[in-house]
Design a binder for these strands. Structure first.
Length: 715
DNA sequence: GAGCACTGC
């Protein structure tokens, strides 16, 4: 349970619940819950274990423990205030004496690992078996049962449950934890729960947040009461640079060296923006410190980012190196990390934080429907979170590589919520499925730009998920069941018509996991050669299919993966995703089928099926030699990772990435006349910007007309 | 001829 510097907002429906006031006389029940001293566990009727008492002693030291009675009293007099899931359990038990009645408390987390680890911790605290009274539910793993009273789940998972059960009737209380992170799913849940509360006076909602935005949450939920829990962090001294730094990377490295030279022992955490920058910085830090000779203590520089193999990630928990000689200068661990260390991963023992003030952040441009990652300044809230990482074990220091003036004047107070930075096609589809028909008047805490919503509706309409009135179609309903982007769900749904659903399942799975091609710095050539062996001349999607087939043919052998520079983890995960997709296909009686591999149509069918989903992500090769995206007319380049041996006239692409240039990544050759067949509604030339592609398409349409006439006259 | 912030279903 996050007990660090947090302000917890507890919010309930403003409507009064008569069943609560009727129970007000039973305050003893509440008090008793806090002071249980029996040796029998009231949750499962078993004797408490030794471990229970050990954990209990530690829990009693937590700041929140002192407030438990206060909370329960407040609940008693306010009818509405509860905090911390275990307390909620006590409270709900006290209020629901009828044990035959089923009820469930759900607690959401933004990340799977958190849902798992927090539920394990709570099960330990209550001395019950995980998956019984306390459980969790995440994608690919449901560890809960009919006995479960307290269930941890990811916010995305609760949203999924809501799609099948719009009033969330299984739940008595819903707790949204880490609400300040404002994930897309949490924001959708905010709006949704606000509506559900109106229709379910018996449902209670608790929102937990760690920032000053608490007041905003209060206002959004009609003035719900606020409770604060003191933090347990040590003080962190903040230092700013007197002048702005021109090169934050250089400044960060210089600061590491300074700390190592001048500061007392203690580990260092440096925030940088991405893998390449981090690896580069690690090498430079090692070099600079080795130049200092043995007058300084030894260092251990550890990179940290999400795509790092777990064994490498574990190194952040290694202790700092021992002094080289007895009594010599102390060693120091230096962790160089992305934002992953800001929220997802906590490293104890960090005393010094270096914050250059940047992070890669997702931005969305609705005009060209492109999501991209841009290095941008962080928010004050984020800077605060980063500095807090220095004070977990003892008082620390944070070096901000920007001026105090810049902190005060330039940084926005909060990071823009994800919902304002994302393509919302998938979200809008989910909302439609949840029965939200009027998106314009849906009560978003931060309403997305109307253009973003319009774009999402437009895309869903072109895909046939929404009709012209904006109502969910049967296709849209099925699409919403897939944990994929709408384009991909569409291509899966139509794939049986092209007799290639087995292959489209594999391609979809491969596109849903991290890049499967490994390219170590020391073996780039060998890795490129290995990749080329999987290459399909018609495109990267088909190359991915080749890799998947080869992986299966080699019995999912990790050694085979290693020898072929294929990421075994990615492949395992693709297999897992594929199985999930197969289950969904079966549920809707979508046929699993393949074209005969020796048929000329084998790959043609696959490419046509892909086009049926991705007809809005097409680029045309202009006579000038560069590609223009169709309709949006953006100049793009084939990403150098592609494995085509030629420049096709038309390609579909999976991703548009803005880095040194505008790249389209994962591309496959398709034919212009398929566009006319597969997506005539999108390639309606009366509604098409004037360009070379339009003229080519005009010819194709004329040819089509002519062929039709000829076949008619022949008949 | 370049990269992969972080999540989630």
């Amino acid at each position: 349970m996050g007990t660090e510097r947090k302000r917890k907002v507890s919010l309930f429906d403003v409507m009064e619940d008569p069943s609560l006031s009727a129970k007000n006389t039973k305050s003893n029940g509440l008090g008793a819950a806090a002071g249980v001293s029996d040796l029998i566990n009231k949750w499962n009727g078993k004797a408490y274990s030794q471990r229970y008492f050990e954990i209990l002693e530690k829990r009693k030291d937590l700041p929140v423990w002192l407030q438990k009675d206060e909370f329960l009293r407040t609940l008693h007099s306010n009818q509405t205030l509860i905090l911390i899931p275990q307390f909620v359990l006590d409270a709900v038990v006290a209020e629901n004496t009828d044990t035959r009645k089923k009820w469930l408390i759900g607690c959401t987390q933004p990340r799977r690992v958190a849902a798992m680890s927090v539920s394990r911790r709570v099960a330990d605290e209550m001395d019950v078996t995980i998956g019984e009274e306390v459980g969790y539910s995440i994608r690919f793993e449901d560890c809960s049962s009919s006995r479960t009273m307290l269930k941890y789940l990811t916010d995305g998972m609760l949203l999924r449950e809501a799609m099948a059960d719009p009033l969330l009737e299984r739940y008595k209380v819903i707790i949204l934890d880490e609400a300040h992170e404002r994930t897309l799913a949490t924001d959708v849940l905010f709006g949704l729960l606000k509506e559900v509360l109106r229709n379910r006076p018996d449902l209670k909602l608790v929102v937990m947040s760690a920032t000053l935005e608490a007041e905003k949450f209060q206002e959004y939920f009609s003035g719900a009461p606020l409770m604060k829990v003191p933090g347990r962090l040590h003080p962190v001294e903040i230092f700013y640079t007197p002048e702005p730094e021109r090169d934050y990377l250089e400044a960060a490295i210089r600061t590491v060296v300074q700390i190592h030279l001048c500061e007392p022992p203690g580990d260092v955490l440096v925030f940088l923006t991405g893998e390449e920058e981090i690896e580069d910085a690690c090498r430079k830090i090692n070099k600079e410190v080795s130049n200092l000779g043995d007058q300084v203590g030894p260092i251990k520089v550890v990179p940290l980012y999400s795509t790092l193999p777990p064994a490498m990630q574990q190194k952040i928990f290694d202790p700092a190196p021992e002094p080289l000689t007895e009594g010599g200068p102390a060693g120091r661990k230096i962790v160089v990390s992305t934002n992953i260390a800001e929220t997802s991963l906590t490293i104890d023992g960090i005393v010094y934080v270096i914050d250059p003030g940047f992070a890669k952040q997702k931005v969305y441009n609705p005009r060209i429907r492109v999501e991209s990652l841009l290095v941008s300044p962080i928010s004050k809230a984020s800077a605060h979170q980063r500095s807090g990482r220095a004070g977990r074990t003892r008082p620390g220091k944070c070096f901000r590589l920007y001026t105090e003036r810049s902190f005060n004047n330039d940084l926005q107070p909060q990071t823009y919520p994800e919902i304002l930075r994302s393509n919302l096609a998938n979200t809008v589809l989910a909302l439609k499925k949840l029965g939200i028909d009027d998106l314009v008047h849906f009560d978003f805490m931060d309403p997305p730009a109307p253009e973003t919503l319009m774009r999402a509706l437009e895309v869903l309409n072109y895909l046939g998920a929404l009709d012209d009135e904006g109502n969910l179609t049967r296709t849209g309903e099925i699409m919403s069941e897939f944990p994929l982007d709408p384009q991909m769900s569409k291509m899966l749904i139509v794939s049986p018509e092209f007799n290639c659903s087995n292959e489209i399942l594999s391609v979809s799975a491969m596109l849903s996991v991290p890049n499967c091609f490994v390219r170590p710095r020391e073996a780039q050539k060998a890795a490129d050669e290995a990749k080329a062996r999987f290459g399909h001349i018609d495109g990267d999607h088909l190359t991915l299919l080749n890799v998947y087939h080869a992986y299966k043919q080699n019995n999912e052998d990790p050694n085979w993966c290693f020898e072929n520079f294929v990421n075994n983890r990615a492949m395992k995960s693709a297999d897992n995703v594929r199985q999930q997709l197969v289950r969904i296909m079966s549920r809707f009686n979508l046929r699993m089928c393949s074209t005969d591999f020796n048929s000329r149509d084998y790959y043609v069918n696959i490419r046509k099926a892909m086009l049926s989903g991705y007809f809005m992500q097409v680029a045309h090769l202009e006579r000038t030699g560069h590609y223009l995206t169709v309709k949006d007319n953006q100049v793009v380049h084939l990403h150098p990772s592609n494995c085509l041996d030629h420049k096709p006239e038309w390609v579909i692409y999976n991703e548009y990435v803005l880095t040194t240039r505008n790249f389209i990544r994962t591309v496959t050759d398709i034919r212009g006349d398929w566009l006319v067949d597969v997506a005539p509604h999108y390639y309606d030339l009366s509604n098409f910007p004037n360009c070379e592609a339009k003229r080519v398409l005009e010819k194709l349409y004329k040819k089509r007309e002519k062929e039709k006439d000829e076949s008619k006259s022949r008949r």
